[in-house]
Amino acid sequence: MKIVLNGEPQEVEARSLAALLEEAGISGRVATAVNEAFVPSALRSRHMLAEGDRIEVVAPMQGG
């Protein structure tokens, strides 16, 4: 399935958002959004991805 992860088009095996994070090697304290809508961490394993979904994964970063 083709999706866009953090702006990069990718072909992935994962069907759920939780599986996608695992496949991408992302762990730790992150937050996720699919198609510009926030998906809480508790819902990631239930959130199924669809072809062309745009997924954003963010983590703590320096800020002013």
Binding site: A24, I26, P60, Q62
Partner: peptide, 21 residues
């Protein structure tokens, strides 16, 4: 301390920053 969010990759740069904060 003000902080922000940015895209995270497999390297996990955000995790070490969070530990420091």
């Amino acid at each position: 301390a003000t902080v922000s969010l940015r895209r995270e990759g497999a390297g996990g740069a955000g995790q070490s920053f969070w530990a420091m904060i």
